[in-house]
Write a protein that binds this DNA or RNA. Structure first.
Lengths: 112, 112
DNA sequence: CTTATATACCTAAGTTTTTTATGCATTAGA
DNA sequence: TCTAATGCATAAAAAACTTAGGTATATAAG
């Protein structure tokens, strides 16, 4: 697991992207999916995740649907229309960011 | 200028990388260089830069050398030996991070 | 000549986002 | 029956930054 510090600021985008690909997901599922997809590189803590989900919901980007599975509850989140738009926008910003950073830290860079 | 939020956590690495490529630089020069290299995508604010430089110096990663140019002073920073080691390490973490994020937000991802 | 912009340093208060540390409850497995 | 996994949550603290100042010199424009 590398420098978790670098992931600061990208949590919202990660959540939105997952919901764009998976229609609906619940919190715990998101933490597991991210751990799996990143091969353990990134572990989303619950202390970060739940407040983030609540904020996205409050901002109108996510809708919640509570389900009871056995005797335990799950809160399924999915994108609203606005959420879908915002996701596209945030993904573009992310791509731009990644391109810029790649360029900045490229080992060849600055030697030209 | 995209989402500045995404750059949170990467300032130290950016500074170190620049000093690895340019031997010595002063604060203002760093802000200008980053603006130029990123074509305005990233603007490092002085309120973020100077505290970061001071911290890197306090951590023993940078050495300072004060120079007088005309009637104005400049503080040139350069990597210490430890700083050079840390830079290599941080650049590896950055590459890992970029790879992981690229993978996570890849549009094709999650559709397989 | 005076005013705006660029150069060059700095700090402090406030905000945002995350970590760390809890808490509660259910279910499955050893 | 005890531990780990599932599933939600919050609250205090830390970290990193933005915003908003402050000081001073140099230079270009009007």
């Amino acid at each position: 697991m590398g420098n978790q510090k670098l992931y600061k600021g990208s949590l919202q985008t990660i959540i939105l992207k997952l919901l764009a690909s998976n229609t609906k997901m619940y919190g715990y599922e998101i933490t597991q999916k991210v751990k799996e997809l990143t091969k353990g590189e990134l572990k989303i803590t619950e202390g970060a995740l739940y407040p983030a989900l609540h904020k996205l919901e409050a901002d109108g980007l996510l809708d919640v649907e509570v389900a009871k599975v056995g005797n335990r509850l799950r809160k399924y989140y999915k994108l609203t229309e606005n959420g879908t738009r915002e996701t596209a926008s945030k993904l573009e910003e992310m791509q731009e960011f990644l391109k810029t950073m790649q360029h900045l830290v490229n080992p060849k860079f600055g030697l030209e």
